[in-house]
C-alpha cells in the first residue's frame, strides 16, 4: 500500500515551519531506536555496525561494553555473525557463540579479556532498498534460541534505522 504522497507532503509542510521540534541529532535518534530495540526485544544489549564510504564495516555504537567488545572483535577479525549478515544480506542467528565453529575466532578474541559477556547473537541486515547499509545485532549474555518473534522485531527496528539513515542522507545532501 503506497503512501499518499500529497498527504504526506502536506503534512510535513504543516508540521515543519517551526523547525525540528525537539532538536535531536540523527545520532540521538539512532540511540533512541537502539534503546527501544533492546527493551522491546528483551535482550541484554544491541549493537549497530555500518558500512563506511570505502565499504568497510565499522562499529557505530553498542548499548553495553560487552556489545562493543563483540562489534570490535568482528571488525578486527572480519569474521562474525554481523559480518556474515552484511555479506549475505541475510539474518544470522547464533544461539551460543561458544559452541559455534564458524565464529570460534571471535569467541577466542573475546575470551582474551576474560569470560565473555555475550553468548547469543542475532544479526539482521539494515537494508536501504537493495543496498546493505549495515547490521543491527541483538545480544544476550546467556545462550539463547532465537524465536521468530524476536527475529521479526529485530527486522522491524532495522527497518526504522534504515528509514532514519535514508532521511539523514537526504537531509545531509
Amino acid at each position: 500500500m503506497p503512501v499518499d504522497q500529497n498527504a504526506l507532503a502536506a503534512s510535513l509542510d504543516s508540521l515543519g515551519a517551526a523547525g525540528a521540534p525537539d532538536g535531536r541529532t540523527l545520532e540521538q535518534r539512532l540511540d533512541q531506536v537502539m534503546t527501544a530495540a533492546r527493551d522491546m526485544i528483551h535482550v541484554d544489549g544491541v549493537g549497530l555496525m555500518l558500512l563506511d564510504e570505502a565499504g568497510v564495516l565499522r562499529v557505530a555504537g553498542a548499548s553495553l561494553p560487552a556489545g562493543l567488545a563483540l562489534e570490535r572483535a568482528q571488525q578486527t577479525l572480519d569474521c562474525g555473525p554481523g559480518v556474515d549478515c552484511v555479506r549475505t544480506a541475510g539474518i544470522v542467528a547464533v544461539p551460543d557463540l561458544a559452541a559455534s565453529d564458524d565464529y570460534a575466532p571471535v569467541w577466542a578474541e573475546l575470551r582474551k579479556e576474560g569470560e565473555p559477556a555475550v553468548r547469543a547473537v542475532l544479526s539482521v541486515p539494515v537494508l536501504v532498498g537493495t543496498i546493505v547499509a549495515g547490521t543491527l545485532n541483538a545480544l544476550r549474555s546467556r545462550p539463547h534460541a532465537w524465536e521468530d518473534d524476536s527475529v521479526r522485531a529485530a527486522e522491524a527496528y532495522a527497518g526504522v534505522i534504515s528509514a532514519l539513515l535514508r532521511l539523514g542522507a537526504t537531509a545531509q545532501g
Partner: peptide, 26 residues
C-alpha cells in the same frame, strides 16, 4: 548506546552516493 558520529557520517555519504532517499517510502 552512543553512536559514533564519524562512522555515521561516512555511512551517510555512502548512502547518499548510492541513491537519494525517498521520503514517502521511508
Amino acid at each position: 548506546p552512543n553512536i559514533d558520529p564519524e562512522v555515521l557520517a561516512s555511512s551517510l555519504r555512502r548512502l547518499e552516493r548510492v541513491g537519494g532517499a525517498d521520503i514517502p517510502s521511508a
